[in-house]
């Protein structure tokens, strides 16, 4: 295992996250895609930290995981309140941005 493998894995996870975010209509799925994006970035940080023997990358990976957890908590709360308002989880019903 070398750095390239790690970076390719991270990028793959990142692209899959973007793909998921763009293609799915379900809000939960979009959230999951966003988590994948964050984690793809975290994998890259971790990979750099491992191979360059730099503590900052690890700190950054942990920081991203923390942010992701917080984000998930906030967004799940938002999704719940939206669900209570509209009765479904499709992002098509969330067209209030036009207003």
């Amino acid at each position: 295992m070398n750095l390239h493998t790690v970076l390719l894995t991270g990028s793959l996870i990142f692209l899959l996250g973007i793909y998921t975010t763009l293609t799915r209509k379900n809000l939960i799925s979009i959230l999951m895609g966003m988590e994948l994006i964050l984690n793809g970035a975290a994998v890259q940080f971790a990979g750099f930290a491992l191979f360059n023997n730099d503590g900052n990358g690890r700190v950054m990976a942990v920081f991203i995981i923390t942010i992701a957890a917080l984000e998930a908590a906030v967004i799940l709360a938002l999704i719940y309140s939206l669900y209570r308002k509209t009765g479904n989880l499709s992002s098509d019903s969330m067209s209030d941005l036009k207003k």
Binding site: T21, L22, D92, D96, K98
Partner: peptide, 14 residues
Amino acid sequence: LQTGYLHNYLHYIL
């Protein structure tokens, strides 16, 4: 452009 649909905006962001 101004559809208001969330995923459209995500496309723009990307």
